[in-house]
């Protein structure tokens, strides 16, 4: 332990950690998209899930899937570019193992919901794709709001 390290008191370390937490919270919050962007992105992802399930043998639903996918990519690109113009570069890959695991689990859930909707629709459950779309839209909304940097560091406002 060096001299400076010995000088760090419990209180000093505690206030340094609080300072770090606040700065990280501010930084992460600044990457959060506007409510309209979050709603559009979530709605498009929901439509993608639902239309992909209905698309089997139906060209109109296939067309809606393609359009919603393209629009979703456009919205996410708009978000990236506008952040960059504001002087903030968003990480495209998650931070470390924890972040990677979080994104992998999120993608797995989205995929399972989408494939599950597709399969259940094929077996005659016509309402399932709508529920699947709503579930995936909610996941995207929560993810963009609480985890805008794709890191597993949830921001809780007002703490």
């Amino acid at each position: 332990m060096n001299n400076q390290e010995q000088d760090i008191t419990h209180e000093n370390a505690k206030s340094a950690l609080k300072m770090i937490e606040n700065s990280q919270k501010d930084s992460i919050t600044s990457f959060r998209p506007t409510l309209s962007v979050m709603l559009i992105a979530a709605a498009l992802f929901g439509v993608m899930t639902t239309s992909a399930s209905y698309s089997s043998g139906n060209s109109l639903w296939s067309f809606i899937t393609i359009v919603s996918t393209v629009l979703f990519i456009c919205v996410m690109t708009y978000r990236y570019v506008s952040l960059r113009l504001d002087g903030k570069k968003l990480k495209l890959t998650p931070n470390g193992m924890k972040g990677g695991l979080f994104v992998s689990i999120e993608l797995l859930i989205l995929t399972v919901v989408a494939i599950g909707s597709m399969e259940l629709y094929k077996s005659g459950e016509e309402w399932v794709p709508i529920v699947g779309g709503l579930i995936n839209a909610t996941i995207v909304m929560i993810s963009l709001y609480y985890f805008p940097t794709s890191d597993f560091s949830k921001i809780t406002e007002g703490e």
Binding site: Q4, S30, F31, D86, K91, N95, T149
Partner: peptide
């Protein structure tokens, strides 16, 4: 000890969740 100075600690904390930030931010 380089990181521990309050302003530098905040700079590192701000940069940690981001790919990069502009000086003005």
């Amino acid at each position: 000890s380089i990181i521990h100075a309050p302003n530098r600690l905040q700079i590192c904390a701000l940069l940690a969740p981001a790919e990069a930030l502009e000086f003005i931010v």
